[in-house]
Amino acid sequence: MALLLGALLIFGALFLVFSAIGGLSPERQGVSRSLEVLEAMTGTPAAEPGVEADQPFSERVLIPLLERLQGLGRRITGADQAERIRQQLDRAGNPAGWTVDRVSSGKILGTVVVLAFAAYFALMLGAQAPILILSLAVGAVLGFFAPNIWLYNTAVKREEELLKELPDAIDLLTISVEAGLGFDAALQHVARNTEGPLAGELNRVLQEMQIGRSRTEALRGLGERSNVKDLKTFVSAMVQADSVGIPIAQVLRVQSGEIRIKRRQRAEEKASQVPVKIMVPVILFILPCLLIVVIGPGMIGITEAFGSK
């Protein structure tokens, strides 16, 4: 009950704070004065009292609150930080509904919410002043960087999937080009017959080419949106082959062989790491149980023998 009451108080405080921020800003006051002057000059009748009450809760409360959070996020987040967030969104695959403004407002909202929860739980546990200050500082930092952590985690998982899908996609692309398809048609064939983030990236390359970007620019954009080294190497080889005039099929065959070799090397590397990684659970959990089973009966017998004497 206390937790529910605290959560209600926290969200109520958030709403009041951000409503006050939006209502007391100079821009808001200036716009309100201008609207009042225009309404007085044109003689527009006032809205009926029940019209605003008939609007949904999201239009009356949530959307204005989100707009105020986005405005505050733009003020706090500089141009450099906004560009970094945009790069993180590209690496994460631009999740639906996530924009630079949404991430900026989420950082502010996360800071306030986590800070309020940290203060509430610290006060419930009766923490002293130093622990209270430390918990508030940790909560503020965690809430502020929570969207960045989520984007980074999403980007890392997505790049792992890209790395797994890349060899098979390049093999299919090589077969399609050697069968007589052009490079653009082969890209479309691979994007249509595969699934996952790589298919989405290839679709984006094709869409950029359709709206007027050159093949070189679209491929370079594909390499810039990811930190996968194999993908960057493939894109660089395709760009150089397109600019120099080397046959695409020959370059694709070479790239396909190199990427298969790298995939086998990564598998061998992970296999060589297994004995080292398995040593810790074996020493901590398996060996003690074996020692108890093997030495335990003997120790019990020795104890009984010496105890009887």
Rank of each mutant, 00 (worst) to 15 (best):
N94P: 06
N94E: 13
P95W: 04
A96L: 13
G97H: 07
G97C: 09
T99I: 11
D101E: 13
D101A: 08
R102Q: 10
R102H: 12
S104T: 06
S104A: 15
S104V: 04
S104P: 00
S105L: 00
G106L: 03
I108H: 03
T111F: 12
T111M: 11
V112L: 12
V113S: 07
V114N: 06
L115K: 00
A118N: 01
Y120H: 09
F121Q: 00
A122R: 05
A122V: 08
G126V: 07
A127Y: 08
A127G: 06
Q128W: 09
Q128F: 14
Q128S: 15
I133L: 13
I133R: 04
L134M: 13
S135Y: 01
L136W: 06
A137L: 15
V138K: 01
V138I: 14
V138F: 10
V138S: 07
G139L: 01
G139F: 02
A140V: 06
V141R: 05
V141S: 07
L142V: 14
F144A: 05
P147H: 04
N148W: 09
I149R: 12
I149G: 02
W150Q: 11
Y152W: 10
N153P: 04
T154N: 09
T154R: 12
A155K: 03
K157T: 15
R158W: 00
R158S: 05
R158H: 03
E160D: 12
E160P: 12
L162Q: 01
L162S: 03
L163Q: 13
L163M: 10
E165D: 11
L166C: 07
P167F: 01
P167T: 08
P167E: 04
P167V: 06
D168W: 11
D168M: 14
A169M: 01
A169L: 02
I170R: 05
D171R: 14
L173T: 03
L173F: 12
L173G: 02
T174P: 01
T174F: 10
T174S: 06
I175M: 12
I175C: 05
S176T: 14
S176P: 14
